[in-house]
Nucleic acid binder design. Structure first.
Length: 271
DNA sequence: ACTGGCTCCTGAGGGC
DNA sequence: TGCCCTCAGGAGCCAG
């Protein structure tokens, strides 16, 4: 389930294979994703040079001279670099053949991902225009979170997982950051002090930074573009550990569902 | 302006 | 061994 660190890991891994390369051809093996792969995509990409690979939240943006490909991996998507001629796999949706002889392949069993063509600036695309700041951007601060939380009755966990507030934070890292900041995930976002939001912002940045450093979290199937797993799962403190002792106070970790998502926390030391 | 619930999809894993 | 059931979740969308 790619969140920001997994998408950033992929971006870094893919960059040297893609940037500066010319696209020879594009094969759409299965257009069925969250939205259908645009029918004109192969023609748009044909002969174009990839000028950059950018990440915005959990979106990857492949910049060409006259537009960009917007990619999202949903929760089961992966991008793999393979040699031309390698056999296709089940759930391969798209293959982009590069002039290097390598092929960029999108595989997505659950089809929650998407591939879109954007003729203009992708940051102004409706899917991206309303996104909140990147966690690593200067604009993302405790003060910012505190201000945005005024009057909010939703839980703080739903609040930090809202991409309009801050981008890229999924379930795993929301759980981990709330644990690190010792905040009860069930607490209403509007009922948390400015000081505690400073701690939360710092915790989010630190958890994401460490996860990127570890190459992301591989729970079941995350791999980078050449098949390497991430290692941050070894450092998860609470996610997937309900019933185990809290790393801080040793009382058993609790699990509840918030906003349809598994939420693990320590009811004793997260307040 | 917010909020919670629904929806898409397939593979893994548990129970029997 | 095999079948059936439940669950996992990103995020757009919509009704209230």
């Amino acid at each position: 389930m790619p969140e920001l660190p997994e998408v950033e890991t992929l971006r870094r891994c893919l960059e040297p294979y893609l940037v500066g390369r010319r696209i020879e051809s594009t094969r759409v093996r299965n257009p069925k994703l969250r939205w259908p792969v645009p029918i004109e995509l192969p023609a748009r990409l044909q002969g174009r040079v990839i000028q950059g690979l950018e990440r915005r939240g959990k979106y990857l943006l492949m910049h060409l001279a006259d537009g960009a490909v917007i990619l999202h991996l949903g929760m089961s998507g992966c991008l793999l670099v393979r040699p031309e001629g390698a056999p296709a796999a089940t759930h391969d949706h798209l293959e982009i053949v590069l002039d290097s002889g390598k092929v960029l392949c999108l595989n997505d069993p659950r089809r929650f991902g998407c591939v879109l063509w954007c003729p203009g600036d992708p940051l102004e695309h409706p899917l991206l225009a309303g996104l909140g700041p990147e966690p690593f951007a200067p604009a993302f601060t405790g003060d910012y979170l505190y201000q945005r939380a005024r009057g909010r009755k939703a839980t703080v966990k739903a609040f930090i997982m809202d991409s309009r507030i801050v981008t890229g934070v999924g379930n795993i890292y929301a759980n981990e950051a709330l644990f690190a900041a010792a905040i009860d995930p069930r607490r209403a976002a509007g009922r948390i002090s400015r000081k505690r939001y400073h701690a939360l912002a710092a915790a989010l940045v630190e958890v994401l930074r460490q996860a990127i450093q570890q190459g992301g979290t591989t729970l079941r199937d995350f791999r980078d573009a050449v098949g390497n797993p991430g290692w941050f799962q070894l450092q998860l403190k609470v996610y997937g550990r309900a019933g185990e002792p809290c790393p801080r106070c040793l009382r058993p970790l609790s699990e509840v569902r918030l906003a349809q998502r598994a939420t693990t926390f320590c009811a004793a030391c997260q307040r």
